[in-house]
């Protein structure tokens, strides 16, 4: 069996005296979409922040293609190709769309490839090219989400982690975002997707993890989770 692209083993993390993650284990194979679903406050965002080493894990290991990321700075994690689209988008509001995208390519020096990736972002989200000189703070929520995804793509990730990309966005744009995610995956991108919109997330995914108060409650193939009564009653509103 080949090494998984992302391996999270017994991850513990918290803030001060509060322990948020109590032993998270997740595996993402190359080329897959894997979803992490769960209710508010379960620790989904903290999981991503700990994988990115923005929150320093207290115990456990995070391995990208077999190499541990523990002890690295966040920028070193990104340089290795593990990139996160943060919750709430967090675009740089007082910078233009183009400047935001350039920030995504901050660590890169390959001007030609950067220009190619920029064209790829324009192709994925044509509205971004129309608005490239506009300040990001003036975009709608859905457009900001597109920008946040585009910005992360500009760093050429091997694995893209997305935190609640559909949160607070008009339904029509939610469909656009999920279409983009599925297209990126068809083009070969590995994606670890954190979502409250469990139906759509699992619909795209191969495997899913269900998180409850700092632990993975259960996991399995996405199709099985969609049919699981525990998932249906708690997250699918069935």
């Amino acid at each position: 069996m080949s090494t998984p692209l992302l391996e999270v083993v017994d991850l513990h993390a918290g803030y001060g005296a509060i322990e948020v993650l109590r032993g998270i284990c997740v595996t993402v194979d190359e080329g897959e979409v894997v979803s992490l679903i769960g209710s508010n406050g379960a620790g989904k965002s903290t999981t991503l922040m700990s994988i990115s080493q923005v929150v320093v894990p207290r115990r456990g290991d995070v391995r990208l293609a077999g190499e541990s990321l523990i002890g690295l700075r966040p920028d070193e994690v990104i340089a290795r190709g593990l990139v996160q689209v943060p919750e709430g988008r967090r675009v740089f509001a007082r910078m233009t769309v183009l400047e935001n995208l350039r920030m995504g390519a901050y660590l890169r020096r390959d001007a030609d490839a950067i220009a190619r990736d920029l064209r790829h972002v324009w192709e994925l989200f044509p509205v971004m090219e129309e608005r490239k000189s506009q300040l990001a703070g003036t975009l709608s929520g859905g457009e900001q989400q597109m920008l946040a995804i585009g910005r992360s793509l500009m760093s050429r990730p091997r694995l893209l982690m997305m935190d609640e990309p559909s949160m607070g966005i008009a339904p029509i744009l939610v469909s656009r975002i999920f279409e983009a995610i599925s297209r990126l995956n068809r083009e070969g991108m590995t994606i670890f997707l954190v979502e409250q919109n469990a139906r759509r997330a699992l619909g795209l995914s191969r495997n899913g993890y269900v998180m409850e108060t700092g632990r993975i409650a259960f996991s399995g193939p996405a199709s099985a989770l969609l049919g699981d009564p525990r998932v249906q009653s708690a997250y699918l509103g069935a």
Partner: peptide
Amino acid sequence: TNLGRAMRAVAQDPVAASLMGIPV
């Protein structure tokens, strides 16, 4: 410049900046 843009990015949102690989 790249450094200038990075300075503005860190000023606006240091966490997002670090998630873009900017050595804050």
